[in-house]
């Protein structure tokens, strides 16, 4: 009698366990499978004539709209700030995230043409808990640039929060720039600097 109960117990546990495993496997999507159509779509959009003839302002908004599907600019801003992030008020966090996103969007719009005639090859991925790295190579005839996307799983979506270009972490690079400003001019100085840089980029892009 006891043995029967025991068997049933074991079987139930096993059943739940296998279910759980399957459930776990379906719940965590494959990062490369998500990135592939996402990047393909962005490149197709960038190549389209409609996009190429659009105004810089519209181009920027379009890119951010497309990118936000798998890019998390808040996670990015948080890491750019490092330990300082916790010392900021929620309003300051929002303000910084907004400006930093804007800086990235203006800075990268100038590089759109770089991506158009290049091919992206996916070379591998690595998953560690809810983090993943998707490795790619940006290629043309003469050059191969390794680009890695560092992502965090949020719900069903892998969200990029850092890009590693030829071994250089974008977040880490911005962080060092920001640190020296924060040391000397505090948060207000940083905001002024960001606004100035964005204004410059805006002006530069409009002229071009």
């Amino acid at each position: 009698m006891h043995i029967k109960k025991y068997c049933i117990f074991i079987m139930t546990v096993l059943a739940f366990w296998t279910l759980g495993l399957q459930g776990g496997a379906t719940a965590a999507p494959d990062p490369t499978e998500q990135m592939k159509p996402f990047l393909d779509n962005i490149i197709t959009q960038l190549k389209s004539e409609e996009f190429q003839n659009d105004t810089t302002c519209n181009q920027c908004n379009r890119i951010v709209e497309l990118a936000s599907e798998h890019f998390d600019f808040r996670e990015m801003s948080k890491r750019v700030m490092g330990k300082q992030w916790k010392h900021l008020t929620p309003q300051q966090q929002d303000q910084f995230t907004e400006l930093f996103t804007k800086l990235l969007q203006y800075a990268y719009i100038g590089q759109v043409n770089e991506y158009v005639d290049k091919k992206i090859e996916f070379t591998g991925q690595r998953i560690k808990g809810n983090r993943a790295e998707v490795k790619t190579k940006l290629m043309d005839e003469n050059k191969e640039i390794p680009v890695s996307y560092i992502m965090i799983l949020k719900g069903d979506n892998w969200m990029t929060y850092d890009i590693i270009v030829e071994g250089v972490s974008l977040v880490r690079n911005y962080r060092e720039q920001i640190f020296s400003v924060l040391r000397e001019e505090q948060f207000a100085g940083l905001i002024t600097l960001l606004e100035k840089k964005i204004a410059n980029l805006e002006a530069g892009n409009d002229e071009g």
């Binding site: 800075a107 990268y108 071994g167 690079n173 911005y174």
Partner: peptide
Amino acid sequence: EKMKQLSFDPYIAIRNGYFQTRTQM
């Protein structure tokens, strides 16, 4: 030029990029 456009303190951006590339390599 690209690098300069992307950063707001090119001196530090280059310095950091140099060390990151080196460590990575």
